[in-house]
Amino acid sequence: MNGGQDLGGMMGYGPVEPEANEPVFHAEWERRVLAMSVAMGPAGGWSVDQSRFSRENRPAHEYLAMSYYEIWYAGLKQLLIDFELATQNEIETGKVIAPAKKLKRIIKVNEVGQMLSDGSPASRDLSGKPRFVNGDRVSARNIHPVSHTRLPRYVRGRTGVITQVLGAHKFPDAVALGDNDAAQWLYTVRFDGRELWGDEADPTVTVSVDAWESYLEQAD
């Protein structure tokens, strides 16, 4: 969706302000939101792409006014409601009313280390061959999906070069809609800074994005 999360090339946010000796968390509740989000993914059975969409799927002015872990809290709350694991009323009052649902998996303390160090690879087996090879000139399609996508607005309609064929990966646009088997070839596409930002842009800059095959079309 063309939402507040798609920030590349926007203006007016001021300088980057690094915090010296920044702690990993800035409040206890941030620790708990992160941990609940990590634990509830496999428990609830939703994908990382559904999680990402649950966070970004809100009006841009709301997204941009929230801190990072406020967004995570809001996303987790929405997933719990959508998957009927808890009601809005329960979440807001802190009182259980509805019975618990049976979950796919409940993470035990002794499984955490393994779960985190195993991760969840995004690579998939796909028959056939990738359409593009290194050096191909491709354009990012001018598409505007209303749900989750990983093609940022600032490259849409722009032409770049394939610099790496990354193999087949799960396709987030479809996985976010519940099609967990969807997979496509994934490529790194390098764009000249002037192609993205105009002739006045810094000629020494290139920007690379990783793009799935259906995001791209052959350029002349």
């Binding site: 992160l34 609940m36 990590v38 809290y73 808890a86 802190g94 409940i106 303390v109």
Partner: peptide
């Protein structure tokens, strides 16, 4: 409030959260 209801529903082990 959220952690309380999810714990009561048995959706996770609080010790697992601490470990994360």
């Amino acid at each position: 409030a959220l952690e309380t209801i999810l714990t009561e529903k048995g959706y996770f082990d609080r010790k697992a959260l601490d470990e994360i």
